[in-house]
Amino acid sequence: MINFEAIKAIYKFEMARTFRTIIQSLISPVLSTILYFIVFGTAIGKNMQLVSEIPYGAFIVPGLILLTVSMQSVTNASFGIFFPKFLGTTYELLSAPISYIEIIIGYVGAATTKSFCLGLIILITSFFFVDIKVVYPMLMLLMLFLSCVSFSLLGFIIGIWSDNFEQINFVPMLIITPLVFLGGSFYTIDILPIFWQNITFFNPIFYLISGFRFSFFGEGEVSVWISIFSTVIFIVICNIIIWKMFKTGYKIKT
């Protein structure tokens, strides 16, 4: 039988942590995204060419949302499990009648909720700075949700893997940010030389951005189905890794 009470407890606890750290969790990412809108959308964007018939300010909105959402999902989920490890309170999770799936739903569910809300707030904020319409709103919500889930799962893995604060910051800063920037957040890959275009196809975030952008403008660089499929594959892989971590007790159990 599923321990719903435990899932609720973890979820509520994690959400409460967000409200305790509202500046770090919400205000800070929204503010930095607004700065992007002002600089790239309003100031520089006016002087930039249209990208695929889309004004540059509007073009970068999906990429900017994904940039923030990916960072926040990874940070929230990794800190969510890393802190109990750091404080030694994981003993409570491990000695309670909870399965690893329930633990994931609690932690990853909370991290997903936070970054999903953040993504929507940034989207609403973007309406004040650029002229943008969402062609497929339901698809946009689905892609945003899948992005939040996949990065939160990745964050959860990082949280378990990390032994210290340096490692927990290492992956978002040195891997995810470059992948988001180089995955076509601010440009279409056809402006790149062929060699770099081919390299970009190995960047999983490229497919996410393409699918997300398709939901906004009705056009992406690869089929939206490829985007959805690759995101689902990524989620499945993350789940397998977490299952293996819990099964072997990797860096959780002694």
Binding site: F4, E5, A6, A9, L87, T89, E92, I98
Partner: peptide, 23 residues
């Protein structure tokens, strides 16, 4: 070890534990 969430209130912490056990 005194492994506790430092910023949690006593009541909330005890309630959390009960809920974690599905009660």
């Amino acid at each position: 070890e005194l492994s506790l969430e430092p910023f949690e209130k006593v009541w909330a912490s005890v309630k959390f534990s009960r809920q974690l056990f599905g009660k």
